[in-house]
């Protein structure tokens, strides 16, 4: 992990990392979520090492959409450096699936809120 300044943090995905869901969960909690309020921009350096794991990318990056506002996640996850092209494709699939889930949940919540409001009015 390299700290450039207070508001920007560069995180290197370690070469010896195994790419399973539990590893991704640990990485997200330890290096991203804990720093979320202190850091304005996260930069991830993959050093051209392939991740090749849907589970890992989902845990580290896509699950942030469930925790924080999408606009905030997009703004803060600033750059992905030296990520192999096929990982970029995987990441694209994974985050867009999560975004669909967020949109679906938001729609459902709005619907439920309307129903609750109507019941309360009666």
């Amino acid at each position: 992990m390299d700290k450039s300044n207070k508001s920007q943090l560069t995180l290197r995905i370690p070469a010896q990392f195994s790419n399973f869901r539990k590893d991704g969960e640990w990485f997200r909690e330890e290096f991203i979520v804990k720093q979320w309020n202190k850091v304005e921009r996260f930069i991830f350096d993959f050093e051209n090492r392939p991740v090749a794991s849907v589970s890992f990318l989902d845990e580290v990056f896509a699950k942030l959409f469930l925790e924080f506002k999408p606009e905030e996640v997009i703004r803060k996850l600033y750059r992905f450096e030296r990520m192999v092209p096929m990982d970029k494709e995987l990441l694209k699939e994974v985050i867009n699936t999560r975004l669909l889930e967020v949109k679906f949940k938001n729609k459902l919540n709005k619907k439920n809120n309307k129903v609750t409001a109507r019941v309360a009015q009666r």
């Binding site: 606009e71 997009i74 600033y78 992905f80 030296r82 990520m83 192999v84 985050i95």
Partner: peptide, 17 residues
């Protein structure tokens, strides 16, 4: 083999947020 290039999150989001 393809070469890797840096990119931002906005480039891979599909549709409106």
């Amino acid at each position: 083999d393809e070469k890797s290039v840096g990119f931002g999150f906005k480039e891979i989001i599909e549709g409106e947020i």
